[in-house]
């Protein structure tokens, strides 16, 4: 046993542990790439969708690799972000025409989707009494996932998504903050 350099072995094994986590993380975000590919096929601006999809996958992989609160935020964050994504992709296929001409439903759909996503993240965060890193990670992933569809008419869709998300999430966040203070 003396002939084994345990410090070196521990270092090697630690590296294997990190690689194992990385492999698992990459497998875990594979569905995000599928979602991004499908969304890019449907979206009007596929390049934006692809870039946001890659950013979502990279952020998700980093969170899964890191573990702890960010890891637990991946599924709720992406699931919440699917609401604005689907709404925006559906809104892409229709428009409303009035006396001043026709307009896309993308921004309202993104704002509404953002509100729902914000409420969902807040509900899960409060239910789990999660820490700040959960909130931050889940919110980032929800916004990035939603942005895959909300880039439909440029950055106004993403701004709409962000405002909607804040409207949905802030009350839950405040409730948690006050509950913490009261206890």
């Amino acid at each position: 046993m003396d002939s084994i350099d345990l410090a070196h072995l521990q270092q090697r094994v630690r590296w294997a542990y990190e690689l194992g986590r990385m492999r698992r993380a990459l497998l875990g975000v594979a569905p995000v790439l599928v979602i991004a590919a499908v969304a890019a096929c449907v979206a009007q601006r596929p390049m934006s969708t692809v870039w946001f999809g890659l950013a979502t996958a990279a952020a998700g992989a980093a969170m899964l690799w890191y573990g702890r609160d960010p890891q637990k935020a991946v599924l709720p964050g992406i699931a919440a972000g699917l609401v604005p994504l689907v709404l925006a992709l559906c809104a892409n296929q229709m428009h409303v025409c009035g006396p001043d001409g026709c307009s896309s439903l993308c921004v309202p759909a993104c704002t509404l989707g953002g509100v729902v996503a914000g409420l969902a993240v807040a509900a899960v965060g409060n239910q789990r009494r999660a820490g700040i890193w959960f909130w931050f990670s889940a919110s980032s992933l929800a916004l990035l996932t939603g942005a895959m569809g909300c880039a439909c008419i440029g950055y106004s869709g993403i701004v709409g998504l962000g405002i909607g998300f804040a409207v949905g999430a802030v009350p839950g966040l405040l409730r948690r903050a006050f509950a913490k203070k009261a206890s």
């Binding site: 046993m1 002939s3 084994i4 072995l9 090697r12 094994v13 630690r14 294997a16 542990y17 690689l19 194992g20 986590r21 698992r24 573990g67």
Partner: peptide, 16 residues
């Protein structure tokens, strides 16, 4: 020793 080192490698690689 070889087997134990390889086993530790596999165990901690699969720790997640």
């Amino acid at each position: 020793s070889d087997a134990a080192q390889e086993a530790m490698h596999k165990i901690l690689e699969r720790a997640s």
